[in-house]
Design a binder for these strands. Structure first.
Length: 596
RNA sequence: GCCGACGUAGCUCAGCGGCAGAGCAACUGUUUCGUAAACAGUAGGUCCCCGGUUCAAAUCCGGGCGUCGGCUCCA
């Protein structure tokens, strides 16, 4: 039964929105999971078994065991698995009636639960591998010997059926491949990925820090990271101003009543911090910007002629995240959203949403951000508790998003149950170096908050009408976006974003004066440039600049000083030889201007 | 928050009951060099915190805090 678990939205996104047939590799990995379970059964005869599917790059199996497994147990489990593989027993399939199955798995409560959840007409099959018989849909490889090279990777806790109120099981992760070479390659890729981890690079390049004294999940952008952020912010604001957005600033805290009106206090409280008492009034750190922008909208009466009104802010919000889920810059407790709220007539929704998607594409293009997937996050019609508003409202909002994407031919996957409590979303999903999936951007159609706040505009006939709203955040939070940007570029940011765009490297101390002249000329052209005037060898300075991923290294010695030139080395290692200073300045400033 | 692993110099890590260590970085001196690491020296520690065991604890035990990997949740 192990493969019959419902695919998560993440898995669906990875498979491009369709459940694929089990590939031969998936089948083999799923068989590896059975062999691992058989090995665990040898060690723990009382083990209870949950599920053990193939996943991207490997497999896992969830167990309930009398004691916790640790990595020290891996060698023994792997040895037992190797023996089972060598014994090469067949995977034998049998079909059981419901009562036979319940009888056979009487001492396996998780299997019993799965059987009871199966539809009436389901075929119930089991697979026997050596001494281990498992409830399973299959398919499997013919015999244990067909399982490829494998390795156990980690052990972690996982709640039964993903529910934190239910028992916690031990999940053993493994990987398996068709050949030893592929296994080695995969393990090597894992190591390489760690080198691109934004936390590693953030430390190496002095981009940001998280201090225990300040608090977990509270990020300090160090000067170099702050430079990148400021460039991004300026770029975003300019693009948005071109797109008709008006930027504003609003405070980070507000009276609690504001968030009661919006419904956040009722529906989003788990993510909000406790109120702060100020002179008999309760204030809270805002978890979202929308109520503030709505108040800005309500500050004056609006004509239909003004719509769409697009109010934007790089708005800082604070959300409570459990300590165990904080990570570097990608999961934090205080962050700044590239936020905006578009107030428009309902008939303008589709076109406005198209413009939102186009803006996203423009921004991503400019920063060299490529690997992402559109996900339309829909309401789960079965779970009405979680959402507000009626069917009609949801349908209108969901259709606006789908139609917008269809009209520009964008491909997307749909994820039921991932909507916000007040509306469906277009999420843009990206993966970090370790393959974990995050939303980089969320964009929502909202017909609910205008209702809650009784928003109005004056229509052509003088009547009062209710506007629709779009919440949009093309790059989501600056923190998370920065994390992915860092990983995608492995710290070698495009020139226009690089904190240090050029380093001037004098060959000997006597060239320091000329190096300063070179730097001054670049500074006058608004290039971020530093002079490495240490009494080090040129080779050493080049190495340091390379490690800092500085895009331009400008070596100057006697020849360059004589000619009014600089020798240009790029971080790719390419040596462009001596270039006149005018040419050097032209190259660098062109890269910056063209966002290269 | 839950399960597991890990917390030693600014960074990366060794040491695992008996004097606190290495490389890199920093600092000082020598070297003035042509495209990825010159040489020598100096300094740097609450071994995460609190408690316990022991003649003796970085090391063993208990509790706490933090980080990391998962789970749940999410920008």
């Amino acid at each position: 039964m192990s493969t019959q678990s419902k695919p998560s939205a993440e898995q669906m996104a990875y498979h491009g929105g369709e459940m694929e047939q089990d590939s031969p590799l998936d089948t083999m990995r799923h068989s590896a999971a059975h062999i691992m379970a058989a090995a665990v059964l040898e060690m723990f005869p009382d083990a209870r078994f949950a599920i053990g599917p193939a996943i991207e790059n490997g497999y896992y199996y969830d167990f309930e065991l009398p004691r916790s497994l640790t990595p020290d147990d891996f060698p023994e489990i792997e040895e037992r698995m190797a023996r089972l593989r060598k014994a090469d027993n067949p995977f034998e399939r049998a079909e059981l009636s419901r009562s036979e199955a319940l009888e056979a798995f009487g001492d396996q409560p998780y299997k019993v639960e799965i059987i009871n959840d199966l539809p009436e007409d389901a075929t119930i099959s089991v697979y026997k591998q050596a001494h281990f018989t498992d409830l399973c849909r299959g398919p499997h490889v013919p015999s244990a010997g067909q399982v490829g090279p494998f390795k156990l990777l980690s052990v972690a806790a996982a709640y039964w059926r993903g529910d934190e109120k239910r028992p916690q099981l031990q999940r053993l992760y493994g990987t398996a491949w068709a050949t030893q070479q592929e296994l080695d390659d995969y393990l090597w890729r894992l190591e390489e990925a760690k080198k691109r981890d934004h936390r590693r690079i953030g430390k190496d390049l002095d981009l940001f820090m998280v201090s225990e004294q300040i608090g977990g999940g509270l990020v300090t952008w160090l000067p170099k990271g702050a430079t990148i952020r400021r460039e991004l912010e300026n770029f975003i604001i300019k693009a948005e101003e071109r797109g008709g957005y008006k930027h504003l600033y609003s405070p980070h805290i507000a009276k609690i009543e504001l968030y009661m009106t919006s419904g956040h206090w009722q529906h989003y409280r788990d993510s909000m911090y406790s109120p702060i008492k100020v002179e008999e009034e309760q204030y809270i750190l805002r978890p979202m910007n929308c109520p503030h922008h709505i108040m800005a909208y309500k500050n004056s009466l609006h004509s239909y002629r003004e719509l769409p009104l697009r109010l934007a802010e790089l708005g800082t919000v604070y959300r409570y995240e459990k300590s165990g889920e904080l990570t570097g810059m990608s999961r934090v407790r205080g962050f700044t959203i590239n936020d905006a709220h578009i107030f428009c007539r309902p008939d303008q929704l589709r076109e406005e949403f198209v413009r939102v998607v186009e803006l996203i594409q423009e921004l991503y293009q400019a920063v060299g951000f490529r690997d992402y997937v559109y996900r339309v996050s829909l309401r789960d019609p079965a779970d009405t508790e979680k959402y507000v508003g009626g069917d009609e409202m949801w349908q209108l909002a969901e259709n606006a998003i789908r139609e917008a994407l269809d009209s520009i031919g964008a491909e997307y996957v749909e994820a039921v149950g991932e909507a916000a409590f007040y509306g469906p979303k277009l999420d843009i999903m990206v993966r970090d170096v370790l393959g974990r999936e995050f939303a980089a951007s969320t964009n929502q159609v909202d017909l609910y908050l205008p209702e809650r706040f009784e928003l109005e505009y004056v229509d052509a006939d003088g009547s009062r009408q209710r506007p629709a709203m779009i919440h949009r955040a093309p790059i989501g939070s600056l923190e998370r976006f920065f994390a992915f940007l860092t990983e995608q570029h492995a710290g070698a940011f495009p020139v226009w974003l690089s904190p240090v765009q050029a380093v001037v490297i004098p060959i000997a101390d006597r060239h320091a004066g000329y190096a300063e002249e070179v730097a001054t000329r670049l500074r006058e052209a608004d290039v971020r440039v530093e002079v490495d005037a240490r009494s080090e060898r040129m080779n050493s300075k080049i190495r340091d600049a390379q490690m800092q991923k500085v895009p331009y290294m400008l070596v100057v010695g006697d020849r360059e000083a004589e000619a009014g030139a600089a020798s240009v080395r790029l971080r790719s290692g390419e040596d462009l030889k001596a270039q006149p200073m005018d040419e050097v300045i032209r190259m660098v400033t062109e890269d910056i201007r063209e966002h290269r």
